[in-house]
Simulated scan of single mutants.
Amino acid sequence: MMLFAPFLASIVPGIIILLLTWWFKKKNFSFSVRLAPGIIGIVGAILLFYIGFVNIRGFEGIAYGILSFFLIVFAFVALIIGRKPKHTG
């Protein structure tokens, strides 16, 4: 439960981040707009880790750390999706 609850809580924002990045890429937005959801996701994950480590501590703080880890994974995937150029062929 300690691992699955933060993972399940990170799926919804992670899917939103991935869908936004994919939609921005599909609509041919600029490079910085395509990378924005991934960067915002990484900043949010770092903030969650900081809150869990400094303010909350203990087992609940570890849950925040696990949540931030999964959010960072989703954000890096979004950065990779947004970085690749769209093939128009």
Rank of each mutant, 00 (worst) to 15 (best):
I42N: 08
G44L: 14
V33F: 01
F7M: 11
I62M: 11
T21I: 02
P13D: 03
L71V: 03
I17T: 07
F59C: 03
F53T: 11
G65M: 05
F69H: 01
I62W: 09
N28G: 04
L20I: 10
G61E: 00
A45L: 02
R83I: 05
G14N: 00
P85S: 13
L71E: 07
L67W: 07
I81M: 08
L67Y: 13
I16N: 09
I15S: 02
A75V: 09
F76V: 15
K25L: 09
V12M: 07
G89Y: 08
P85N: 11
I40Y: 08
M1G: 15
H87P: 03
H87I: 05
A78P: 02
P37A: 01
N55G: 02
N28A: 13
F31H: 11
V77W: 08
S32N: 07
G82F: 06
G38Q: 13
Y50A: 13
K86M: 12
A9F: 08
F69Y: 10
I40F: 14
G52N: 07
N28V: 04
I46T: 13
A9T: 04
I39H: 09
L8T: 11
P6R: 04
F70N: 01
I46P: 05
L67A: 12
I72D: 01
L47V: 08
I40K: 02
I81N: 01
G61V: 01
P37G: 00
L47E: 08
F31I: 09
I51E: 05
S30F: 10
K27S: 07
L48G: 12
A9S: 12
P37Y: 00
F69I: 03
Y64K: 03
F76I: 15
I16F: 15
S32H: 04
F76E: 14
I56Q: 09
T21G: 00
I42H: 09
P13F: 01
A5G: 05
S30P: 07
A45P: 05
G61K: 02
W22R: 09
Y50I: 12
V43Y: 04
F31W: 12
V12W: 00
L8G: 12
I15C: 06
L35M: 15
S30T: 15
S30I: 05
K25P: 04
V12E: 01
I40W: 07
G38W: 15
A5R: 10
I56F: 08
T21D: 00
V12N: 03
V43E: 03
L20R: 06
S30R: 11
W22I: 11
S32L: 13
L47D: 02
K84I: 08
V33L: 11
M1C: 05
K27T: 13
G58H: 06
V12T: 08
L67N: 07
L47M: 10
I17R: 01
Y50K: 04
M1A: 13
S10C: 05
F74I: 01
F29W: 11
F49P: 02
F4A: 13
S68F: 00
P37W: 00
V33I: 14
S32F: 09
F24L: 07
W22F: 15
Y50F: 06
I39Y: 14
F70I: 00
A75P: 07
W23C: 04
F49Y: 10
I15F: 03
A36M: 11
I42P: 06
